[in-house]
């Protein structure tokens, strides 16, 4: 059974978003997504300061099995990327919600974008349907 923390919001394409206290949003991929992909060997991250639109492809995670595009769940400016993943992409497998985060974004329209995202309960149903 995959872990789906209650305090996060999710997309149908298996990204998660966490609103931080400083107003930024951290983005990663779900436990279910990392399990489907298998061992990650390569992560391509966006540039810091890059402006991205909602649902825009802005990163790639690649496993021994497949490459998968990552879409941002909220629009805004990239303020940080997880550079540890350059050397240790497997952090996404071991810790998808903590050490394996992908990037942080300063949202431009937080309220609208977050409102569109799925709750843990809604996302759990999608995962269940896929299994």
């Amino acid at each position: 059974m995959n872990e789906i923390p209650n305090d996060l919001r999710y997309t149908r394409s298996h990204e998660w978003a966490r609103l931080e206290q400083d107003g930024s949003v951290t983005v990663g991929i779900s436990d279910h997504a990392q399990e489907l992909l298998g061992d990650l060997v390569f992560v391509e991250l966006p540039e810091v300061n890059q402006e991205i639109d909602v649902e825009e492809q802005c990163a790639v995670v690649e496993s021994v099995k497949a490459a998968s595009d990552i879409y941002t769940p909220v629009a805004g400016k990239i303020v940080a990327v997880n550079t540890a993943l350059n050397d240790e992409p497997e952090l996404v497998n071991h810790s998808p919600y903590e050490d394996g985060w992908l990037f942080k974004i300063q949202p431009s329209d937080l309220k609208t974008d977050m409102g569109e995202l799925l709750t843990a309960e809604e996302y759990a149903k999608i995962v269940e349907a896929e299994e």
Partner: peptide, 9 residues
């Protein structure tokens, strides 16, 4: 069996 947890390991 594809793997038993991690193909890389």
């Amino acid at each position: 069996p594809l793997h038993y947890g991690s193909q890389l390991v």
